[in-house]
Computed example of a mutant assay.
Amino acid sequence: MAQGHTTVSLIFVWPSPAGQARERRVVKSKVGEMVSLPCCRQIPRSESLQNYRAYWQKNVTDVVLAYSDGERIRIHERYRNRTEMDPWDLILWISPVEILDNGTYQCVVQHNSVVACDERVTLLVTADFSEPSITTEVSASSCESTEVVIVCSSHGGFPKPKISGALNDVSVEWNASWVSESSLSLYNITGTLVLNVTSDVNITCSVEHDGLAKSSSLLLKKTNDCVVPPVPPSYHVLIASSIVVIIFILAIILAARYLPRRVCPHCCRPQDPVEEGMKEGTKPPASSKVTSETSSV
């Protein structure tokens, strides 16, 4: 038997056909835990078990466990190694609890072949859903807004859940879908939402079942990553730019070709000493000028 035991019992009262009020017990438990179903009668220790017959049945048709004269005489195969009953207090113990254990049980006690007790107990089995997972996918984008597909999913819970959510604390309705093998199987749930995001938004997704809820949140930021494509230059601009580049190249070529010719050749060209002396000897003699003065007596 499992060690965990968290049984929650509720009692409902409804009128019987004879007009007398009868109690209806509801016990809640989670998958994998231990649950105890109380019977409507306990056998006093002062009496003999030889005079009693007690059995538990489910949905009226399946006998879960049966005792006669204090000895077990029958057990359902699906409950084998998971079920016990004390022959005195007649409490039915089930561990570990499974989804298929969900349903209505009936405790019947006979004393000297006369029905001394007959009462039903409803067992509600639950299983916790996983923490909701929120994912996003951009389906379309522009500078003004971004269309995002938001998916919220959770799995492994019971019973069939509901999904709800909010955008910046404003309620929103999800397009929900469920997956389960049967009505007594674990459920997977997925909620889809298409949203046009124009600014930062906080998304909350909640999965609710049997009065319990698990929630997750995601902050979705609007990114302003619009890039304006460059405008190609016009035909006239291309022609003018080409002319400027050609003129600049021609100016460099002309400057490189004619600039050395304008420099003094004697300043830039070194002279040989012998050649310099020969030039000095061939120079004509310097002419002397005579200035006559007239004096008067």
Results as ranks from 00 to 15, higher is better:
Leu250Ile: 01
Leu238Cys: 02
Val60Leu: 14
Glu98Met: 07
Asp118Trp: 07
Val138Gln: 14
Leu184Val: 11
Ala255Asp: 10
Glu280Pro: 01
Gly277His: 15
Glu98Arg: 15
Asp86Ile: 13
Pro17Glu: 08
Ile247Asn: 12
Pro284Tyr: 05
Ser295Thr: 15
Val228Thr: 13
His76Phe: 13
Thr61Lys: 07
Arg262Gly: 12
Gln20Arg: 06
Pro96Tyr: 02
Thr136Lys: 14
Ser29Thr: 09
Asn168Trp: 02
Trp174Tyr: 09
Asp169Lys: 15
Ser154Glu: 02
Gly103Ile: 01
Leu167Gln: 10
Gly165Tyr: 02
Cys267His: 05
Gly281His: 13
Gly4Pro: 14
Arg261Val: 13
Ser133Pro: 08
His5Ile: 07
Leu195Gly: 00
His209Gln: 14
Gly4Phe: 11
Gly4Ser: 09
Ile99Met: 09
Asp89Thr: 05
Lys283Ser: 10
Leu195His: 12
Val148Trp: 00
Val35His: 03
Leu10Met: 13
Val227Gly: 01
Ser164Cys: 04
Phe158Pro: 01
Ile91Asn: 02
Ser215Asp: 11
Trp93Glu: 10
Leu212Ile: 01
Trp174Ser: 04
Lys214Ile: 10
Lys58Leu: 11
Glu275Asp: 05
Asn112Ile: 07
Ser36Lys: 12
Glu84Gln: 09
Lys222Ser: 12
Glu208Gln: 05
Ser183Cys: 08
Ser29Lys: 00
Ser48Glu: 14
His236Trp: 11
Met85Trp: 02
Pro96Cys: 05
Ala240Asn: 11
Tyr105Leu: 08
Glu84Asp: 11
Ser182Arg: 04
Pro229His: 11
Ser154Phe: 00
Val207Thr: 01
Pro260Thr: 03
Val108Cys: 03
Ser199Glu: 14
Val121Arg: 03
Lys214Leu: 10
Thr198Asn: 13
Ser68Thr: 11
Leu184Glu: 12
Thr136Ala: 06
Val244Pro: 06
Cys226Trp: 00
Cys205Ile: 14
Arg120Leu: 07
Asp118Ser: 14
Met34Lys: 13
Asp101Ala: 02
Arg22Ala: 04
Leu212Val: 15
Cys226Leu: 00
Met34Gly: 12
Pro230Lys: 04
Tyr187Ile: 08
Tyr105Ile: 03
Thr190Cys: 13
Gln3Arg: 00
Cys40Asp: 04
Phe129Thr: 01
Pro270Cys: 00
Arg120Val: 14
Ala286Asp: 10
Val13Cys: 08
Val297Arg: 09
Met1Pro: 00
Ile247Tyr: 02
Ile203Thr: 05
Val231Leu: 13
Trp178Ser: 05
Leu100Ile: 12
Leu220Met: 12
His111Thr: 07
Ser145Met: 13
Gly281Phe: 15
Ile203Asp: 10
Val207Met: 13
Asn196Phe: 15
Val274Arg: 11
Leu123Trp: 03
Ser183Ala: 07
Pro38Ala: 06
Leu124Ser: 14
Gly157Leu: 10
Ser141Asn: 05
Arg74His: 07
Tyr55Cys: 07
Tyr187Ser: 08
Glu119Met: 04
Glu98Gln: 05
Asp225Gln: 02
Arg22Leu: 02
Ser216Asp: 01
Ile189Thr: 03
Val149Cys: 02
Ala18Arg: 00
Glu147His: 00
Ile243His: 06
Val290Met: 15
Ser177His: 04
Lys289Asp: 10
Lys160Pro: 11
Gln42Gly: 00
Leu195Thr: 04
Cys264Gly: 06
Ala256Tyr: 09
Leu250Trp: 03
Pro230Cys: 09
Ser16Glu: 09
Thr282Gln: 06
Cys264Gln: 11
Val290His: 07
Ile249Gln: 05
His155Thr: 08
Arg24Ile: 01
